[in-house]
Structure formats: C-alpha cells, structure tokens
Design a protein around this nucleic acid. Structure first.
Length: 491
RNA sequence: CGGGGUGUAGCGCAGUCCGGCUAGCGCAUCUGCUUUGGGAGCAGAGGGUCGUAGGUUCGAAUCCUGCCACCCCGACCA
C-alpha cells in the first residue's frame, strides 16, 4: 500500500485522497458530492463525538434533535442568514412520485403533489430552532437554553473533497439563548475554548483562536470566533467556529422574554459547530509518506498485536501469552486488536496497520517467548524496541501518552517553523507563496482584504484573540493599523 | 458552472488511434501443498451490463452523440 502512496512533497492532494480511501476512512458514494464514511473512519468520528459530547455536557449543555427540513419562509426571516445560504440549498418541492405511464418501471414526480411551501434541507438549523425557541421562552426563568444537536446537514458545494468539503456532512451544532449580551458573549468564547481544548488534547492539533473579519463572518452573526489549524502543505484549515448572534435571530423570530425587572427584551443567541471536516484536519496534520498517523486518544485501535509463528503449536503458545497481555491492556482502557488471521504474513500486517495509523504495534514470536520479550514499534517515529514482557502494560500506557504528546509537539514546531511576521507587501507575497501563517498589519477594510485575496489567494484567517496592540502600517494600503492579523491560503 | 483528464473483474492497469475469433495482465479471492521476525512460493480455479443511454455497422471496449461520476486547474464557498 504505502509503496503506491505518493509523497506529500510530490502530490499533496493525491496523497490525502489515497490515505482517506486506502486507510478505509471513507469512499465516494454514487451520489454526487456525498461520501460513505466507512467503519474505520466512523470509529474515529465516534471517538471525537464521545469526547466532545462529554465536554458539552460538562459545560451544562443537553442534546436535542430538530427537523431536517426548514420551511423556506423560516430561512428568509433573518436577512443576512438568508442571503448567505441561498446559493447552496437543496430544495424539496414535491412529496410524491408515481409510476410513469409512458415508461413502465420508471418513476416520475407527481405534479399533483407539489408542496404549498418549499422545504429546504437544512444547511444549518438556526431558523428552525429559533422558530421553536419562540414557544419555549417567556421569562428570564426560561433562560439560558443550552442545547446541542448531532445532525447531518446539506450544503450544495460546487467542488467537493472527502471530509474537507462534502455536500452532506455530519456535525454538531450548539444553539443557546441568553438573557444578556454579556452571558452570550461568554458562552461564545467558552465554546471556542472547548473546541481549542479538544483539538489540542485529543487531536494533538495546535490551533489559533481568533475572530473572523466581517467578510468571513457567519451569515447572520455579529461576531464569528474560530479555531484555525495549519496543515502540512502550509494551508490553513478552519477547524471550528463559534458565533455570537446578538439579537438577530430573536428579532427575526420575535423571541422576547420578560426580565427580572419586568421589561420585555429580545433574547441573545450563540451557535457553534464542528464537523466531519475535523477528520480531514486529523489526516493532514499528522500523517506521513507511510500512511495515516493517528493520535492515540482518537485511534480506534491503539495497540495491534501480531503473532509470528511457524507451527500451530507455536501459535497456541503465543496466543495464550497475547490474550493475557491483551486483557491487561484492556483493563487499563486501552483498545487492542490481536490479529491472528492466518491468511496474511506478518510483514503484510506490519505494513497494513502502519498504513492505517495504529499508534503501537506489538509483535510476538518464538524468539520472544524464549526471551520473555516482545517487539514494540511506535507509529509516529517508527522506532523499534525490544521490551521485557514484565511491566509491559505500564510501558505501553506511557508510550501511548508519549506518542500523543510527541505528535502535538511536532505539530507545534511545524507551525512555529511556518509562521512568519512580515512588514511589506513584497515580503508578504513571498511568505504566502511559501505557505504557512503570515502575521501582517491590515487597515481593517473589507476592500483591502478583498484585493489581497485577489492578488495572492490569501485570506485573513483570523484576528488572534491574543493579538498584542502594535502600531504599524497596512502592508497593502500603508494606512495605520493597531494589530497584526493572520493571513494564509486556506482550505 | 468553465477548461483539461479519466471511467475495462474487488483494486491497479493494457487493449481504443487503425472496429473482427473466446477481452487480457498484475494484485486480491477460492482450493491444495510448502511458508511466516517488514507486503511469501508453486500448482490449479472462479470472477466482466468494457460508466450509462442511444446511434452507425454484417459485427462496437474500439467510431459518433447525449448523459453520469471521479480527478486536476479555475470560478464559487460563513
């Protein structure tokens, strides 16, 4: 497998496509722009879901589910929102098919079953949710509402790529309602922190936290916060967003509450989401020319054990030892696969699990049985070690932790090496050409942002939360600027 | 949505220009034997609407037209 894999340096996008498909994460379906997430890929997504879901619940949120369909009139209510999403909506106009009288065995749309009002397949759920919240909120005592939903959504993109941009994708969307502006802003920032924490602790992916420029803001939001990650080809990837929606949706859907003081006011809102795009980020952050590399915290199989044997009796003896090791590892919460299939050679298995990114491989053969050892190989560095069987479980446990932090450190230093501050437009163009995050002064106008994008394909990824005040001149217009913003070419 | 490319067995491909017998090769699969510490060997077997719909022809994987999907480059995208 790995021998056919293009090198990252030679053909990055082909490298990505092949890892996704050949490591059995996902494949193209026969539906345009839509993917099938295969069991191995879905297992990773489930681990992401489990971790995020716990984090949401630990911060006071509960799960619920809202409809797939949004009546067109709901989507229209918030003007910016409507305009932003109009171009990429799938529309349901009929509710029935019938057998074509002219072509037996064919189905046609039944013209008599036209919907009074078109239904939009949700591109996001603000509209249907705020329509619902109207019925739930009368008083400040009904607030806050802190709801998350796990769902699929549809955005009719022109060009798709597995996980990174697909027509249908899976995500979670949090939708909260608050009595005060301050509380909603705190919520928006809190969830951004949750995302950043998740990316760094579980995905081993360092992220920049920041706010989007008005150009890049969510349709209908007052402020969009984001986490931005740097991929190995030097392009940025927006890995999650958290929106402060102000009172826009409350006004659009007429959601008011009476305050403690007895005054009527509109409710304050947030929404926040991450999607299966994180799978793409995970692949592009750590994997190498030998295939997928998974951080132990998200690996469906953390340890694979491969027996090496000639005779059945040897396998029996090895199996006994392996099952004991497996049990001990599992008691520590480590997921283990013992691959004793007899239709593959050990070498084949080595290559296979390496390609699939399994963090730790243990091989056990007759020699080891004699010496009381095992061969252990870590996927991140491909370092091979011979370890004593005694205390193996603790060693493996530490090794997994070590791999997790090593991946994170590697990603951090990659980002450091590919981050630069520039002061002139020439330097800027050079830096963007090279790839990576580029810190530069910007005059704050959408026009400048737009022109830089036209000329260099770079966009402002975010205005970092921790940006220091620093007087400078916009690299494009020369006008004064008070802080640097982060530019990059992006996915 | 525009330009370019691709579509033949589960996967990767040859054959298409210049139409012709039973559509081939590697990997994978199945059976048997030998193997097993980095993608094993030998022998045998099975597997095909040649993307799809139509057309030309005695005859189409091959020529013509439409359509579909995927890849690359643009445009588009919070």
């Amino acid at each position: 497998m790995a021998k056919d894999l293009p090198k990252r340096s030679e053909n990055y996008s082909e490298w990505y496509n092949q890892i996704v498909t050949k490591a059995d994460l996902a494949e193209h379906s026969s539906v345009r722009g839509c993917m099938v997430i295969k069991p191995y890929g879905y297992a990773i997504w489930e681990k992401m879901q489990a971790a995020l879901d716990k984090m949401f619940k630990d911060t006071g949120h509960v799960n619920a589910y809202f409809p797939l369909f949004v009546p067109k009139s709901f989507l229209e209510k918030e003007e910016g929102h409507a305009e932003g999403f109009a171009k990429e909506c799938a529309v349901v106009t009929h509710y029935r098919l019938k057998v074509d009288p002219d072509h037996k065995g064919k189905l046609i749309v039944d013209k008599d079953a036209k919907l009074e009002e078109e239904l939009i397949v949700r591109p996001t759920s603000e509209a249907i949710i705020w329509n619902t919240y109207k019925g739930w909120i009368q008083s400040y005592r009904d607030l806050p509402i802190l709801i998350n939903q796990w769902a699929n959504i549809v955005r009719w993109e022109m060009r798709t790529r597995l996980f990174l941009r697909t027509t249908e994708f899976l995500w979670q969307e949090g939708h909260t309602a608050h009595a005060t502006r301050e509380e909603a802003v705190v919520e928006t920032e809190k969830m951004l922190d949750v995302y950043a924490d998740f990316a760094e602790r579980f995905m081993a992916l360092p992220v920049l936290k920041g706010v989007k420029t008005p150009n890049e803001r969510f349709a209908g939001a007052l402020e969009t916060y984001c986490i931005e990650a740097l991929m190995q080809d030097g392009k940025a990837l927006q890995a999650g967003t958290s929106h402060f929606l102000g009172q826009n949706f409350a006004k659009a859907f007429d959601v008011k509450f009476s305050s403690k003081e007895g005054k009527l006011d509109y409710v304050w809102a947030t929404s926040w989401g991450v999607s299966t795009r994180l799978m793409g980020a995970l692949v592009m952050a750590h994997s190498d020319d030998e295939g997928l590399v998974l951080p132990p915290m998200l690996a469906p199989i953390q340890v694979v054990i491969i027996p090496i044997y000639k005779k059945e009796e040897e396998l029996a003896m090895i199996s006994e030892k392996v099952l004991q090791i497996k049990k001990e590892l599992e008691a520590k919460g480590i997921s283990v696969k013992f691959d004793n299939s007899d239709n593959r050679s050990p070498g084949w298995k080595f290559a296979e699990y390496e390609f699939k990114g399994v963090p730790v491989r243990i091989a056990l053969g007759p020699r080891d049985m004699q010496n009381g050892t095992v061969e252990v190989v870590r996927r991140d560095t491909r370092e091979k070690m011979v370890l004593q069987q005694t205390d193996l479980v603790n060693k493996v446990e530490h090794l997994l932790e070590n791999i997790q932090s090593n991946l994170y450190q590697k990603a951090i230093s990659f980002r450091e090496q590919n981050t630069i501050s520039v002061n002139t437009y020439d330097e800027f163009k050079q830096a963007i050409e090279k790839g990576g995050f580029v810190y530069a002064h910007w005059d704050g106008t959408p026009e400048t942002e737009e022109k830089i994008k036209e000329e260099t394909k770079a966009t402002i990824r975010c205005i970092p939360m921790d940006a220091k005040n620093e007087n400078g001149k916009c690299i494009f217009s020369g006008k004064p600027s008070e802080r640097r913003v982060v530019f990059a070419q992006a996915y």
